[in-house]
């Protein structure tokens, strides 16, 4: 399950990535494998043709992987980089559904941004790290 931060991690903790597009283009894109296919299909409704190419959802044209949406890139950043925390403010609802279902990873947002389909997440703040099991409980934690 993913870990949710509502405050920016301290410099001694994990690195926070805010510009998901740039991080993806420079780092995550070089490490894509079959795990990315399902995420790209779910969020961007695109087929991954090769490690660096997708088919456009609009006209089927072959595109460089840098044309993925920011939400899709964010989900992939989280999946492939469990040692970093990623800002999810730019993610659409469809990307949030995928992110909240990832087996691991770290996300940050300073206001509630929750998938309606969420199951369990870890939440982390100044005081503790604990498990939260419902949409309502997570929203309440964010509001505290």
């Amino acid at each position: 399950m993913i870990t949710v931060y509502k405050k920016k991690p301290s410099p001694n903790d994990l690195e926070l990535v805010t510009l998901n597009d740039i991080f993806f283009n420079k780092s995550t894109a070089t490490r894509m494998d079959d795990r990315a296919k399902e995420i790209i299909a779910k969020i961007d409704q695109s087929e991954m043709l090769s490690p660096y190419a997708i088919a456009s959802r609009f006209d089927g044209m072959k595109l460089n992987i840098d044309k993925l949406s920011t939400g899709c890139k964010t989900a992939l950043n989280i999946l492939y980089n469990p040692d970093k925390v990623f800002d999810i403010r730019e993610c659409g609802d469809n990307a949030l559904d995928v992110i909240y279902a990832l087996p691991s990873g770290n996300v940050y947002c300073d206001y509630p941004l929750i998938s309606f389909d969420m199951d369990k997440v870890m939440v982390r703040d100044d005081r503790s790290v604990r498990e939260v099991e419902s949409y309502e409980a997570l929203k309440e934690w964010w509001a505290q």
């Binding site: 969020i43 961007d44 949406s69 920011t70 659409g92 469809n94």
Partner: peptide, 23 residues
Amino acid sequence: FEVDFILENNITFIVGDSGTGKS
């Protein structure tokens, strides 16, 4: 690709799912 936006207000805020073509 063709873009045809009718702008009704001075601020047009565009939201939507990821991957719908906003960028």
